[in-house]
């Protein structure tokens, strides 16, 4: 069913000084689908996302967007392509209101003056398009919002720009049950609107509830990318914890896989 991938990563390497965090990682993101990116703490999920969004530069590998190879060096490059990220540590300014946050760094201006009415209207339309009707005022400070509302603002910020790919890094990590359900519903709706969605999550229930595909990172390597319908909970858990499960995942031997990862300082 799925057409060609909208965003495709191949052979991504990334090191911080002597520590190589990503090894030859590949990932395909399809339009209209939610791809869950799973992996243990420190597997490199957030790092991979930051490489795609231009916060980190990659050491090796290619990024193909919409069939064309692209170079992403800054957050601006990513947003120009239509790639938006909702970060694990919410990138919102508490001292600004909802509209100001949604347009941060990309404010609409008339001459040199901020065009507040236009921004307010666009923000309102976007929230309405996501069926969000829970905010009291668009001019409320973000500091006064609940965790779920903040997450909603962060997601709305990401889709405001006719974005094509939205990456969410643990959007439900800090939320209660009801708010988690709301946010997941929102995530699903993004994909149903035709966006390519990447969802990072530690929660298997969430992953199986909304995702179409699952990509499992294990110690900085892509263990497997599979259709959600083809695997079970326990297989995914095995992929996360051991890097393989049955005939899925990384090849069993490769002792040198692990040499790179453990404190590699004295080798170099």
């Amino acid at each position: 069913m799925a057409a060609s991938p909208l965003l495709e990563l191949r052979g991504i390497d990334k090191s911080f000084g002597p520590v190589q965090v990503l090894h030859d990682v590949g990932l395909s993101v399809y339009p209209g689908e939610v791809t869950a990116l799973v992996g243990d703490n420190g597997a490199g999920k957030s790092t991979l996302v930051k490489c795609v969004s231009g916060i980190y530069t990659i050491d090796a590998g290619t990024v193909t967007f919409d069939g064309k190879q692209v170079a992403i060096h800054t957050p601006r490059d990513a947003s120009t392509l239509g790639i938006e990220v909702v970060y694990q540590d919410l990138a919102l300014c508490d001292n600004l209101d909802i509209v100001q946050n949604m347009f941060l760094g990309r404010e609409k201006v008339k001459g040199i003056v901020l065009d507040e009415p236009t921004m307010e209207q666009m923000a309102g339309d976007t929230l309405a398009g996501l069926s969000v009707r829970t905010v009291k005022s668009l001019r409320q400070l973000v500091a006064s919002l609940s965790g779920g509302q903040r997450q909603t603002v962060a997601i709305a910020k990401a889709v405001l720009w006719n974005s094509r790919v939205v990456i969410l890094d643990e959007p439900t990590a800090a939320l209660g049950v009801a708010q988690t359900a709301q946010v997941l519903e929102l995530v699903r709706r993004l994909a149903d609107n035709g966006l390519g969605v990447v969802l990072i999550s530690h929660n298997m229930n969430d992953v199986f509830a909304v995702s179409d595909r699952i990509a499992a990172l294990y110690l900085g390597r892509m263990a497997a990318q599979v259709k959600t319908a083809d695997v079970t909970h326990s297989q995914v858990v095995e992929l996360i914890t051991a890097g393989r499960s049955g005939n899925l995942g990384l090849p069993p031997e490769t002792p040198n896989d692990f040499v790179d990862i453990t404190p590699a300082g004295d080798e170099r």
Binding site: S53, I55, T74, P75, R76, S79, V85, Y87, D89, L90, A91, L92, C93, D94, N95, L96, Q100, L104, G105, R106, E107, V109, I112, V113, L114
Partner: peptide, 24 residues
């Protein structure tokens, strides 16, 4: 209060990392 520059000053003061990620 009315220019992009001013908005960015508040943003950097409120959350410099968020501002950086927003391309400021």
């Amino acid at each position: 209060s009315r220019t992009t520059y001013g908005r960015h000053v508040y943003a950097v003061g409120g959350n410099a990392e968020a501002a950086r990620r927003a391309g400021i």
